[in-house]
Amino acid sequence: MRPDAEKDAVEVKYVHGYPTLAAFIASDPGHSTAIYRRFDFLSARTLLLLQSELVELEAQLRVLDQEDLQNDDEEVTECARDWNVFEEKAKVAHSRAEKRMQLSLLIRAKLKEYSEANSISQDELN
């Protein structure tokens, strides 16, 4: 005869508070007790702040673009057309290319953060 797993199960006790509540929620087979806050205000606020940061970074990039437009240097044109040249020139400390590369990488990271936060917010709306 096989042992009865439910009968032989050891009752686990938890400290009152979050551990007990988590055990209760996890034990609900229909998951009807799993109700969590969405933090809509905080999500919206975070997205607005990220947008504000991106707008500022975009403005900085536009300033660099306008300065480059005024500069008749062939190096500027090469960097604008060839990633390998741009990457190589950006290795020079305190160069324009280094400044642009740092800004580009910051924009990339911020856009990724914004996209992830935005997709989470969109998922919550559905």
Rank of each mutant, 00 (worst) to 15 (best):
A80M: 07
E67Y: 05
E78V: 07
K112P: 02
E53H: 03
A22W: 05
F41G: 11
D68H: 05
G30Y: 09
E87W: 15
Y14V: 06
F24L: 15
T77R: 13
S27A: 15
L49S: 11
Y114P: 00
L42H: 06
I120F: 13
K91M: 07
L54R: 00
Y18E: 09
E98S: 13
S104Y: 03
F41W: 11
A22G: 03
A23R: 01
E98G: 05
S121L: 06
A80V: 05
A93E: 14
R81H: 11
A23M: 06
E87P: 00
L48D: 12
A9W: 10
L54P: 01
L105A: 03
S95V: 04
R45G: 15
K91I: 01
M1V: 07
I25K: 04
E56G: 08
A59K: 10
S52C: 01
E78P: 00
T20E: 14
E78H: 10
L64I: 03
V76A: 07
L103Q: 00
L69G: 10
R45W: 08
D4N: 15
E78M: 12
E116F: 12
K7I: 04
E87V: 10
Y14Q: 05
V10P: 01
S95N: 06
A97N: 01
A5P: 06
P3W: 04
V15W: 08
S27E: 13
S27R: 12
R2S: 13
E124N: 11
E53T: 12
D4Q: 09
A109P: 03
Q60G: 01
G17T: 09
D123T: 05
V10W: 03
E113S: 08
Q70W: 03
L50H: 01
D82T: 10
A26V: 02
K112E: 12
R108W: 11
S104H: 09
L47N: 05
D82A: 02
Q51V: 01
E56Y: 09
N84V: 07
V76Y: 00
Y14P: 04
A9D: 11
L111N: 13
L111K: 15
S43Y: 03
L50Q: 12
E113L: 05
R45M: 13
F86A: 02
V10F: 06
N84R: 12
D72T: 10
K7E: 15
L69P: 02
L42M: 15
R81D: 11
L48Y: 11
L106D: 00
S95Y: 04
V10G: 02
K13V: 12
E113H: 03
E67T: 14
Y36R: 05
L64T: 02
T46L: 07
V55H: 12
L125I: 10
D73Q: 02
E113N: 09
Q51I: 06
L54F: 05
Q60I: 05
L103D: 01
A109H: 04
E98C: 02
E88R: 14
